[in-house]
Every structure is written in C-alpha cells, then in structure tokens.
Amino acid sequence: MEEATRVVLVEFPKVFGIDLSITNEVVLLWLGAIVTFLLAVAACRGREAATRGRFRNLFEMLVEMVEKEVIGGNANKATRALTPFLLTMFFFILVCNLLGMVPIPGVFKAVTSNINVTAGLAIAVFALTVVAEVSHHGVLGFLGRFMPAGIPRWAGVFLVPIEIASWLVRPLSLAVRLFANMVVGHVLLFVLIGMAVASGWWIVGVLPAAAAVVMSCFELFVCFIQAMVFTLLAGLYLKEAVEGHQATH
C-alpha cells in the first residue's frame, strides 16, 4: 500500500500567492462530494413507502441519528436551521474517510488525513459559529462570551485571554482530532500490510495479514466515529452560538 502523493493535474497561476491548481487531492475531495451527493439523492428519491430499501433505511437512520444526537429533539427553530449544514458535514466526512479504505494504492486515500482539508472544514464550522452568534446575540453579545457573567472586572485581565484562547483552540482541536485519527489508522494498516508483504514466508506473513483485516474492520468503525465526533462537536459549538453559551454549559 502506497500513500498517494500530491500530483498537480491542472496548473493555475497563483492568486495572491495562493496556488489553486487542481491536484489529485482536490479531485478526491470532489469525488467525495459527488459520492455524498449521489448517495443522498439516491436515498431521497421516490416518495412512496414501498420504494424504501435497506440503503434508504440505513441512510434515514443515520440522518435521524445525527438530528437526534447533534441537534437534539427539543431544539428550537434557529438551531434546526443548522441541520443541513451538520448533515452535509457528517456525510461528507464519512464518505471522505471511507474513500481512504478503497484498496487501490496510489489513487485513493482519505483526504481527511490531510490537515488542510480538516482545517478547511473546521474553519467552516468556526466561521458559521461566529456568524450565528453575532446574528443571534449581536456584536456585544458575541464579545460578552469572553467575559463570563458574575466575574470581578479585574479578573477579566486573566480570564479574557484564556477565554479567547480556548475559543480559538476549538477549530484547531477539531481539525487535528480528525486528521490525527485518520492518519494513525492508515499508518497502522500500512505498517501491518507492509509486514505481511515483506515477510516473504506465508506462515509469518499470515499474522500481520490477519491483524490488517481486523484493523480494517476497526478502521471502518473509526471512519464512522470520527465523522460523528466532528459533527457532534460542530453541533455543540453551533448550538452554543445560537442558544447562548450559558444555556449549553
């Protein structure tokens, strides 16, 4: 198994020093988006209950799980408006994670094992959090989050920087958590398969091969869990921004 390296497919001139060329990673990103779109549309076609199959049931189950676990059953209208964002986030990350499990070396890899992709997703969450909080509580309300109520003014000197730091670290932790988990799983699989192939003697090679199979199954579970964790935390931050940070503590 060989890690796919960055390959520029279509080169564009740099804009303000930013290289927007189409690389294999961008294509994988688009592939993830296309697969997510096709899966979602396939699951949602047909209105009659008779057309429901296992796939649609599974899809609906995942949608309801995200709505129930992330949004919550008793969420208000403003929080419910975040549902499309969070559902897209969950399925996009899940599909991108699972694309890394396709066993075609050098072509497929999980784009979520690239820190730039996870950072992009975390920035999307961060930006939406700021927009939601400012639109629901105003600029002063947004700034007030850094100075908890009931604290003496002099304590603000210490607390405000800590609050700002903890707020800024959220997208960082989101991005790093997903990136690190996806990388670790794939590295472990890479090592196990490498051992199995490199052993040369099948009796010795069978152990790492078996371990690789078990790890692959576990990795599928991790793909799902990481998508869920990312969405859950994004939902938590967004709910906090909409409903007020006192409400969710």
């Binding site: 290289d19 060329s21 990673e25 961008v26 990103l29 779109f37 979602a40 499309p84 920035i123 999307a124």
Partner: peptide, 27 residues
C-alpha cells in the same frame, strides 16, 4: 496548502447548497 484549504471550503459550501436543494429538503 492554502489552495487545498480553499478548495475544501468551496467544495463543502457547494455541497451544502446542492444537498439542501436536492436531498435534505425532500428527505
């Protein structure tokens, strides 16, 4: 890779727009 980061944001925003229209609303 700021380029990939921006592509991620663009792709994700586009996906939200498309899925909201064709998937989430009907679902």
């Amino acid at each position: 890779d700021i380029g990939l980061l921006i592509w991620t944001l663009i792709t994700f925003a586009g996906l939200i727009a498309v899925l909201s229209r064709f998937a989430w609303k009907p679902l």
